[in-house]
Simulated scan of single mutants.
Amino acid sequence: MKKVTIYDIAKEANVSPSMVSRVINGSGPVKKEKAEKILQIIKKYNYVPNALARSLTKKESRTIGIILPDISNPFFVQIYKEAEKRALEHGYNIILGNSFSDYKIESLYLKSFLEKQVDGIIFLGGRINACKLDEKYVKEMAEIKGKVPIITVNSIYEESSTLNIVTDEEKGFRELVEFIAKKGYKKIGIILGEKCISSSETKREYFLKYIKEYNLSTSKEWIIYSGFSVEAGKKGIGKLLKNKKLPEVIMCINDIVAIGAIRELVSRGFKVPDDIKVTGFDDIELAQSFIPSLTTVDQNYTEIGKLIIDVLATKSFDHNLSEKVMIETSLRVRESCN
C-alpha cells in the first residue's frame, strides 16, 4: 500500500499542502469546515506526519538528550524517571546516554545529540563533578552551550551550562549532623565516595565543618574514601573495622553505600542500630523498604526532574547566561539511626 503524504491529503481535501500543514501544527488560521474535512481525511488514512520534516520546519526535534555516568545508581535513575515522565507530558522524547563515567564516551554522546538536533542536553553527573578535569572537556561543553542549551545537576563548572540545578546538600548535611548531636551521639565516622569527585569532597568539607560546630568527635581513621556502590559500602566497613576504636554513627556518601555498609556490619555480627548507627544520603526508593529503613536526606527528585524539563520545554533560559537554581533537601529520620 502506498504511503500517504501531506500532498495526498491536500489533493483529496482540495486544499494546498500548506493549509494541511497549518491544521497539523496548529500554526495558522483555517476555516472550521476545511479544518474538519482535513482532519477526517487524516483519520481515514491514519496519517502520521514525518517527525524529521516537522523538526526541520519548526526548528525543533522535540527530543532531549540525557547523559548520566552510571545507570545502576538509583540517584541518577530516579531523576531520569521523573524527567522522562515530565518530558512525555510536554510531548518530548528522551534519548539516554550511559557514559560509564568515561568522559570520552560523554563526548561521543554530545556529538550524537548535536547530529540528532536535540532541543537540549541534560548532564546528571560525570565530568561536571570532576575536581580535576582536562580543559578540553570544559571547553567542549562551553562550545556546545552556544548551540544547544545544557542543563546540569550539581555541576562545579557552572559557566559551561545554561542552567545549573543545585540541591542544597549543605542544609541536608547540617540537619543530619544536628539530629545526630541531639540524640547524644558523639563519635562519628564517614564513608565517602571516590577522591576528586565533588560530591565526596564537598561532603567531607561539610562533615568536618559541622562535626566541629556541634562539638562531636572523629578521627582520620574514621574518614574513609571508598566509592559509590553497595560494594564500596562493604569495603568501607572493612577498612573501618581494622581500627580498635569505632564510631557510634557511620555517615555514608549515599544510600546504596549505606545499604552495603549495613549488610557488611550485620555479616560481621553487629546489630544496626543497636551497636552502630548508619545514615545515608539521597532517599532512594529502597531507603524506606530496606531493613532497617534508612535515616537519610531527601534530594527532592520529583522537583529536579520537573524543573530540568520545564526549563527546556518552555525555553525559559538565556543562552548567554549561566544561571543557578537551588532545590530544597529534607531530613528523613528512620530506623538505621534514631
Rank of each mutant, 00 (worst) to 15 (best):
K2R: 15
K2G: 03
V4D: 00
I6K: 09
Y7F: 13
D8K: 11
D8H: 15
A10R: 10
E12P: 09
A13D: 08
S16M: 03
V23T: 11
I24D: 12
G28H: 00
K32T: 15
K32Y: 04
K37E: 15
K37G: 05
I38S: 06
L39V: 12
I41Y: 06
K43V: 07
V48F: 07
A51G: 01
R54G: 15
S55G: 15
E60H: 13
S61T: 15
L68V: 11
P69E: 04
P69C: 05
N73W: 02
P74N: 10
V77A: 15
I79K: 03
Y80S: 12
A83W: 05
A83N: 10
A83Y: 05
A87M: 01
A87D: 05
L88A: 14
H90W: 13
G91D: 10
Y92D: 03
N93L: 12
L96N: 08
N98P: 13
S101N: 15
D102Q: 08
Y103H: 08
F113K: 07
L114I: 14
L114Y: 13
E115Y: 11
G120L: 08
I121S: 09
I122T: 08
F123Y: 15
F123A: 02
L124E: 11
G125Y: 04
G126H: 08
R127G: 14
I128Y: 10
N129K: 14
N129W: 00
N129F: 00
K139C: 02
E140F: 06
I150H: 06
V153F: 12
S155V: 09
I156P: 01
Y157T: 08
S161N: 06
N164E: 03
V166M: 11
E169N: 13
K171A: 03
R174C: 12
V177S: 00
V177C: 09
E178V: 02
G189R: 06
G189S: 08
G189P: 10
L192N: 12
K195G: 05
I197N: 11
S199R: 02
S200W: 07
R204C: 02
Y206S: 05
L208M: 12
I211F: 04
I211Q: 09
L216R: 04
S217R: 14
I223K: 04
S226I: 09
S229F: 06
V230N: 09
E231C: 07
E231Q: 13
K242T: 03
K245G: 02
C252A: 09
C252P: 02
I253T: 07
I253P: 07
I259H: 06
I259Q: 08
A261N: 04
E264R: 14
E264T: 05
S267F: 04
F270P: 01
F270M: 10
K271R: 14
K271W: 00
V272N: 00
P273A: 01
I276E: 03
I276T: 06
I276Q: 07
K277V: 04
V278W: 03
E285I: 14
L286V: 12
S289R: 10
I291E: 10
S293F: 04
L294G: 11
T295S: 14
T296L: 08
V297Q: 05
Q299S: 14
N300R: 12
I304A: 04
G305F: 07
G305I: 08
V311S: 11
K315G: 09
K315L: 07
K315V: 07
F317Q: 01
D318S: 13
H319I: 14
L321H: 07
M326R: 13
M326H: 05
E328I: 00
R334I: 11
S336W: 03
